Amino acid sequence: MPMDEPQHRLTVVGGGVMGSSIAALALGHGVPVTLVDLTEDVLRVTRENVDRQLRHAQLLGALPEGCAPAELVTTTSPAAAAEATAVIEAVVEFSGTKAKVLAEFAALTGPGVPLITNTSGIPVDELAEAVPHPEDLVGTHFMNPPFLIKAVEVIRGPRTGERTLARVGSLLTALGRTAIEVRDAPGFVTSRLLHPMINDAARVVEAGTATVEAVDELMRKCLGHPTGPLATADLIGIDNLVDSLNILFERTQDPGCRPCELLLEKVRSGDLGRKSGRGFYDYGKASM
């Protein structure tokens, strides 16, 4: 780490699936985390999820050998972010909510502290309107689970500054991740390719052409997809997938991005994937 680079002190806003997963990744690499959410009940569940993911990562050998986990502080007070060297926003995939959170934390940290929106599809420059220093804002798209997936899509908005990119690159290096930089656009690269493909896989099942299991097995064994698209949907969270597809459809008008009825029905039924215990597959109990 360069001599003028401060020790990383990360604030994560949002204790859901991605917020807790990013926190676990950072803690496992020795980076202290302050995690902010709205209620103590949410934070209690978040702490349990972080602990579980740290155990899984250690069992899988996914963390640096000999590195003791750093300290996790959980709080309902945004003011705890004042000393952060970077803030990762990982709240729900709605631009208005993200913009409000980014504006609040920008006021607390002041200029020069990277504001990182973890989004699967909202263009960074849309959110830049909400912050006083757009050069501090950058996008990331961590894949789930972050402790196993080594690369992170880094989205450079039109107003993202070089200093911000350098600092985010330093943070990701400290987390053992490879940053792959892309330009700003709806869905960027990964979601723009993956999410319509999952939508099409669900349409195949909806049409009765093949079972869920057959679709995933063919994609794994014939086309090299590591998990299968519908198992991947369960891992992403089907509600999150539908939100991302809606963002893509609204901004591109690509009909392939309009969520199919099977996905919508699963969301209405509460079958959201691993986190609810049932999605395209039955997991017995909630596992996220």
Rank of each mutant, 00 (worst) to 15 (best):
F94A: 13
F94M: 10
S95M: 03
G96E: 15
G96S: 14
G96Q: 14
T97Y: 11
T97L: 13
K98T: 06
K98M: 11
A99D: 07
A99V: 08
V101D: 02
V101Q: 06
V101Y: 07
L102K: 03
E104N: 09
F105K: 11
A107S: 10
A107G: 11
L108Y: 10
L108W: 06
L108S: 04
L108A: 09
T109A: 00
G110D: 12
G110P: 09
G112L: 00
G112S: 00
G112E: 01
V113P: 03
P114L: 06
P114E: 02
I116L: 01
I116V: 13
T117Y: 05
N118G: 08
S120D: 05
G121E: 06
G121N: 07
I122E: 09
I122W: 13
P123K: 13
V124C: 08
V124Y: 11
L127E: 07
A128P: 06
E129F: 10
V131K: 05
V131R: 07
P132K: 08
H133T: 15
E135F: 08
D136M: 05
D136T: 03
D136K: 01
V138E: 13
V138L: 14
H141T: 03
N144P: 01
P145C: 11
P146A: 15
P146S: 15
P146Q: 14
L148E: 10
L148P: 04
L148Y: 06
I149C: 12
A151L: 07
A151N: 07
A151F: 00
E153V: 02
E153R: 08
V154M: 14
V154H: 10
V154W: 08
R156F: 05
R156P: 02
R156N: 06
G157Y: 09
R159K: 14
R159S: 14
R159I: 00
G161C: 06
G161T: 00
R163E: 15
T164M: 06
L165G: 14
L165T: 04
R167V: 11
R167F: 04
V168W: 01
V168M: 02
V168Q: 05
G169T: 15
G169S: 14
S170K: 08
L171Q: 03
L171V: 01
T173M: 02
A174W: 04
A179N: 13
I180G: 03
V182W: 07
V182Q: 01
R183W: 04
D184Y: 04
D184F: 04
D184E: 03
P186I: 07
G187E: 12
T190E: 11
T190L: 14
T190N: 07
T190V: 15
S191H: 03
R192D: 12
L193H: 01
L193E: 01
L193W: 00
L194A: 12
H195I: 04
H195V: 08
H195G: 00
M197T: 09
M197N: 00
N199M: 05
A201T: 03
A202N: 05
R203E: 10
V204E: 01
V204H: 00
E206P: 04
A207E: 15
T209V: 15
T209E: 13
T209I: 15
A210W: 07
E213Y: 13
E213K: 15
A214I: 14
A214C: 08
E217S: 14
E217V: 11
L218N: 05
L218Y: 00
R220L: 12
G224K: 02
